[in-house]
C-alpha cells in the first residue's frame, strides 16, 4: 500500500494546461462548487448525525454526549472533543490504524471552525461549575474520499450539531433538549494549481495542488478560522481574493445545510 496518491505526469500536465486557459478537468469554473447533498438524522444511536456528499466525497458525522468533568482552566464550560477517522474503505491510500497526521489535521481544522466561531455555546453545557459538564464528542468518519474532505467534514459536523438532542433523561438530568447552535460557520477550501486558484478541489486537483487554503466564514461574513496547507504559498492578493470568493459562495451552502 502507498500512502500517497500517484498522479501521472501526463495528467498533471493536462490539468495545469487546462488551468492556464481557465478550465478544470471536470468542466467546472474556478469558483464553481460541486453538488452538495446533506442528510440529517441518519444514525439513530447518535445524539445527532448527518451525512454529506460533495461530488464523490462522502462523510458521516455522529455526535455522542456524556457527562464528565470540565477542564480546570474552563470550569464553567462543557467539553468539545473532535476526532476524525480516515477509514481504509474511503481510499486505496488510507491505512487502518490510529489517526495519522492527515486525520488529526482534519479533526483539528473542523474543530477550530466550530469552536472559534462559537457555533456551540460551551457555557450552556455546564451543569455544575468545576464539577460536572456535558462532554460532546464530534466524530467524523470519511467514507469515500474524492477530494476536499475539509469542507465535507465541516458541513457534516455543522449539520450533525443542528440535528443534536442532548440526552439528559438518559443521565437522569431532566428532560432531553435540543442543542442550541449559535453560529453557522461555513468552511471553504481552495487549491492553488500552478498559478490558478480553484474552489472545492476534486481528487485530482487535491493531489497535484501546490498549496491549499481553508477559510471559515460565519453568517455575518466574519472570518472565524483558517488553515493553509501544503508546501506552496499564496500572495497577499491571492489570499484576499480567496476570502472574497468564500464570502460570496458561503451563504448558499449555509442555507442548504441549515434547511436540510
Amino acid at each position: 500500500m502507498t500512502s500517497e496518491e500517484i498522479v501521472s505526469e501526463i495528467k498533471r500536465d493536462y490539468i495545469n494546461r487546462l488551468a492556464e486557459v481557465g478550465r478544470r478537468i471536470d468542466g467546472r469554473a474556478f469558483n464553481e462548487y460541486r453538488e452538495i447533498v446533506v442528510e440529517k438524522g441518519v444514525i439513530s444511536t447518535a445524539e445527532g448525525s448527518a451525512r454529506v456528499r460533495i461530488g464523490g466525497t462522502e462523510v458521516v458525522v455522529g455526535v455522542k454526549m456524556d457527562l464528565g468533568e470540565p477542564f480546570p482552566d474552563t470550569p464553567n464550560m462543557g467539553v468539545l472533543t473532535t476526532s476524525a477517522e480516515l477509514g481504509p474503505l474511503a481510499s486505496p491510500t488510507f491505512e487502518a490504524g490510529p489517526p495519522d497526521e492527515k486525520a488529526i489535521e482534519l479533526a483539528r481544522v473542523t474543530d477550530r471552525a466550530i469552536r472559534e466561531s462559537g457555533a456551540i455555546d460551551l457555557q450552556r453545557l455546564c451543569i455544575e461549575e468545576g464539577n460536572k459538564v456535558w462532554v460532546l464528542f464530534l466524530d467524523i468518519y470519511v467514507l469515500d474520499y474524492d477530494g476536499n474532505m475539509f469542507d465535507a467534514a465541516e458541513y457534516c459536523a455543522l449539520a450533525a450539531l443542528l440535528n443534536t438532542t442532548v440526552p439528559a433523561s438518559r443521565f437522569d438530568m431532566g428532560d432531553d433538549f435540543k442543542l442550541e447552535v449559535e453560529r453557522y460557520p461555513i468552511s471553504m477550501t481552495f487549491a492553488k494549481i500552478e498559478n490558478s486558484i480553484v474552489v472545492d478541489p476534486s481528487l485530482d486537483e487535491d493531489n497535484i495542488a501546490d498549496a491549499r487554503l481553508t477559510v471559515s466564514i460565519d453568517e455575518e461574513n466574519r472570518i472565524r478560522a483558517m488553515q493553509k496547507g501544503l508546501s506552496g504559498g499564496f500572495t497577499v492578493d491571492e489570499v484576499k481574493k480567496i476570502i472574497n470568493t468564500a464570502m460570496e459562495l458561503a451563504p448558499k451552502i449555509r442555507k442548504k445545510i441549515v434547511e436540510a
Binding site: V60, A96, F137
Partner: peptide, 18 residues
Amino acid sequence: CRYDMASFSVIDRKRPGP
C-alpha cells in the same frame, strides 16, 4: 478483513479504533 464499529454506532460511545 477489518470490521470496525463507528464511535456513534452504539448508545454508549465506543472509543474509535479496534
